[in-house]
Amino acid sequence: MKQSLFTLEHARQLTEDTYELVLSGDTSAVTAPGQFVNIRLPGRFLRRPISICNWTDEALMLLVKVVGDGTRELVRCVPGTELDVLSGLGNGFDPTAAGPHPVLAGGGIGIAPIYGLARRMLDAGQAPTVALGFRSAKDAFYLEEFAALGCRLLIATEDGSMGAKGFVTDCIRNVPECDYVLCCGPLPMLKAVHGLPQLRDGQFSFEARMGCGFGACMGCTIPTRDGYKRVCKDGPILYKEEIVW
């Protein structure tokens, strides 16, 4: 973990409630896709935990969905705004455990860490299939960026307005050779993916209301087969066999 100031370089609206933010600063604490940052906002007591979409040596890219007053203020920050950020939080995905046929599954704003994960797996010579789910075409975002990666890309929308009609799980069923999942999305999606019989193992990114975001307050702990774990510090990535629904 590192606490430092980042500067908002740009904010781009992607859908009605989703934004891409680029923050410049010291990213040396970020070591794995699936980690998150915890951002302090003026006038808000608790920080806002946001998954890292992608990063370079000098910048963080975040995808932010407006879900309340805090995230609304965050996306409205003007370029040049300095933000107090705790970076490099959480364990992150471990792509080396994924085997030859991994599928990366993202639902809604949960596609954010999937993008950085896919890029790093491709850079490492792995060949992931990416499955993305949205409610409808108007809620879909980052499709061009994912398409530019060049890996197999499957898309599902609940109303069928884009890609296949259905859920991410339907996409995964259509690629039966994929036996390892790395995924992030809302709890019902995680649970549905977890139940797919074709998956021998996988990594699941959880979210929780957090107090500190760095393991001190026990505000976000959840039960697992290996005892209670802190989503912020021992997670947010949990492995298939340890998850208790």
Partner: peptide, 23 residues
């Protein structure tokens, strides 16, 4: 002690609430 179920944390004006439950 395992503590309370989730969620355990909420924000408040100039503060917060917790119900960790002595985990």
């Amino acid at each position: 002690r395992l503590g309370n179920p989730q969620p355990r944390i909420a924000e408040a004006p100039s503060g917060m609430l917790n119900a960790v439950g002595l985990q």
